[in-house]
Nucleic acid binder design. Structure first.
Lengths: 142, 142
DNA sequence: AAAGATTGATGCATCAATCTTC
DNA sequence: GAAGATTGATGCATCAATCTTT
């Protein structure tokens, strides 16, 4: 109950940070190296492909990503320049359409992403503590 | 053993991401709101204050942060402009010196940071599963 | 040459200000 | 006016190229 963290507290905090950063970075690195997609790219493309079956209104997309409009706008500008998506004016909004290149990239990325999530996160969770871990993560994130 | 993630796997993956992002964001937000320091700012200042007792060679600092030289150089340029540190040429390198403002900011930030780490992370970890959790984080991060 | 450091370019995140369209 | 979208500015991360000092 001191003002600063104890040794043990500091260690746990560092372990948490290190783990979070390592898991995030390794998965992103593996997917990105093969497909050229960043994590945000992958999120956008999977949503447009799945939810919209290839096209989705920009505002819906922002909501489903939990992003502000401006963030999505900036990101789509970059993705459009790389030929991954197109923007198409629609009734009261803008439609985001995935391109052939975009479909190809996300199709290649999906199994890589799944394998990386397993190898860098899921496979390390012992079956007998999975429920506790799940409960803890739920509390931490809510 | 499919190509993609199952429901349960996807849920755990999302919980992990959500928790990591929430914990990181909340702590950074609380410290930043009061002190104006970002997470990298806080890391730099604490190291200069502790390891160097107020001044530290830039290369040492980069190593202790796990940063590349260029990243530190860019960051110090911004911190210098805000009056948090000064750069001073030294034998075969550059000395990073914390300013009075820098000392004040980090002194204010430290207890806030400790309290935030407890409230948003440590307090949620049940004592009886702390050892398992610690072991899991160690494996994930190494 | 080699180590230490800087710079410029690009991508990404966030905020405020603006523009457009209903 | 209000919702949807864009733009510009700033901070931060990463890479490659460069400069400097020994």
């Amino acid at each position: 109950v001191d003002d600063l963290l104890s040794e043990a507290e500091t260690e746990l905090w560092h372990l948490w940070r290190q783990a979070a950063e390592a898991v995030r970075g390794r998965i992103a690195e593996e997917v990105g190296a093969v497909t050229g997609l960043s994590d945000p790219d992958f999120g956008v493309l999977t949503r447009v492909a799945e939810l919209g079956c290839g096209s989705l209104r920009q505002n819906e997309l922002a909501a489903s990503m939990g992003w502000h409009r401006s963030r999505l706008s900036h990101h789509l500008t970059r993705m459009e320049q790389r030929g991954l998506v197109e923007r198409r004016p629609s009734e009261g909004g803008v439609e985001v359409v995935i391109t052939g290149d975009g479909r190809g990239a996300v199709a290649k990325a999906r199994p890589l992403h799944a394998a990386a999530v397993r190898r860098h996160l899921l496979d390390w969770i012992p079956a007998d503590s999975a429920a506790d871990f799940r409960a803890l993560l739920t509390r931490l994130g809510s």
